[in-house]
Design a protein around this nucleic acid. Structure first.
Lengths: 266, 266
DNA sequence: CGATATTTTGAAATAATTCAAAGGCAGTGG
DNA sequence: CCACTGCCTTTGAATTATTTCAAAATATCG
């Protein structure tokens, strides 16, 4: 029943000219999370992650499918994907949107419990699971940084749980837009902007609704409401501009985000 | 403004006779998560975690408070606590219930972003943060097992997100009861039963409502509904019996739990 | 340009909340 | 031992937020 690696067959490579992203002369922003850790912090692992297989996925393609045996770790270099769980009765919950320098394939089980789909064209590097295990085994400093990634994932989930459990529809959307704003370096298609007020929305309204636990119509109404309040504006439906940051922060409860609460301040 | 370690003053020790839980002759079940990993898998760290400070908290006491500087890791040995985030407008979301062999204090930030409160009397062992860091640094095998703990936390969060985002009130409660059933070794007060149909509820209805993102009244109605359906029964309000397991599994969508989806099966 | 999918808007239905009160249980003091 | 108090839980009725069903507007694609 397992359809592991079927996606490899239908995948196409594009815009990659060298033998791998790390050796074709491009810098930093063409690395995934694991290679970035190694490059920045662990001299002895400098070249450890340069042998990954470059994999590209087109918008809509499946990166990881539910129940697939986990043989490799996929580390995003660019683009955006959704990690979701599909319930029995047709219900779908998007657990996270992942972008540049986020990895996929971590699980405590033999089979991957979620489904990962590319929302835009995605460039990634795939490593055998054993490569990650080895890096952890031989470089304690790498293990430490890898743990920080995992803790960050927990904290994102906690923010998400708070949003879904406690906020109204309008508030959820506001906090989602702020989340995207805080992670533009990962999600924005047009390069690595950071906390610009121009927010790319690489995902559809349905994706947003499945992420926030609401119906599409409610998402659409929430967008309209925010527009009517004068806090956002649209050029087209995939790009919105935050016009009144303080007010959307108030709606979205940005005080309640982990990174806001956890930083030492006077 | 930080009230770090104030709780140390009001804490009382009880029922601890030796110089520490690990050296007073009691076995396995008196260890926290970290010591258990070391004892089971890493011979060279056998005694590494025996020097933690035993800390006990009474029902209602604060174990970790929001904004507290993280200096130590607290590893539960017995009892149950809630990890919650308190929003600005009085909203509270419980992110997780933690029990035996679960640790508290992992965060990517300098200040702990959540609040941890004992729901029953709690025995724990506190280690300086540096002890955990050292264990990871000197024993790769420990790092590996510690990562599994973190991944388990992510998967629990994912189950939680699915429940809050996709399920109705009745379904959420059903899936919560199944969650407790799957984790009786952590939560059950009367020793380490596993998947018995007698479920201890160490938390109040308000706690459950804040965990599931519903109002207390809705939780109460959901309990009554499950009772009316003939799937559960109560002796008192803190202990319920699952009478019809298949049916509560259907309501609770147990198919959608990580551990059900991720295990290899034929 | 026409056809299809996505997004937005409207009106009715429903699930969950809020407000209000009653019932149950534990602890305290007479 | 019983009555009293306070807290937690349950139930009821009205209100509200969100969903569902339906259709119009807008964007996308061949």
């Amino acid at each position: 029943m397992i359809t592991a690696c079927v996606h490899v067959a239908i995948r196409e490579y594009w815009n990659i000219n060298g033998g791998g992203l790390l050796v074709n002369g491009k810098s930093e922003k063409n690395k995934g999370a694991l290679a970035t850790i190694a490059a920045n912090h662990i001299p002895e692992l400098k070249d450890f992650f340069s042998h990954g297989e470059v994999q590209c996925f087109k918008r809509g393609e499946t990166v990881f499918s539910e129940g697939q045996a986990i043989t490799q770790i996929i580390d995003l270099v660019s683009g955006c994907a959704s990690v979701s769980r599909n319930g029995k009765n047709g219900r779908r919950q998007i657990l996270a949107f992942v972008g540049a320098r986020q990895f996929i394939g971590g699980a405590s089980t033999a089979l991957y419990p979620n489904s990962v789909v590319a929302l835009t064209n995605v460039e990634a590097i795939a490593y055998p699971k054993s490569v990650l295990e080895q890096a952890v085994a031989i470089a304690p400093e790498f293990a430490k940084h890898f743990q920080i990634l995992l803790v960050n994932m927990i904290e994102s989930r906690d923010d998400h749980i708070f949003a879904i459990g406690q906020r109204t529809a309008n508030e959820r959307l506001a906090s989602f837009l702020l989340h995207l704003r805080n992670n533009q370096a990962r999600f924005s298609t047009g390069g690595a902007r950071y906390q610009s007020n121009r927010i790319d929305l690489p995902m559809s309204r349905v994706d947003i609704s499945d992420y926030l636990g609401l119906s599409v119509e409610t998402i659409s109404r929430a967008f309209s409401w925010l527009k009517r309040q004068g806090v956002i504006n649209f050029s087209d439906s995939t790009q919105c501009e935050i016009v009144d940051l303080p007010r959307i922060q108030e709606f979205g409860g940005s005080d309640d985000f982990t990174h806001h609460r956890g930083s030492a301040q006077t």
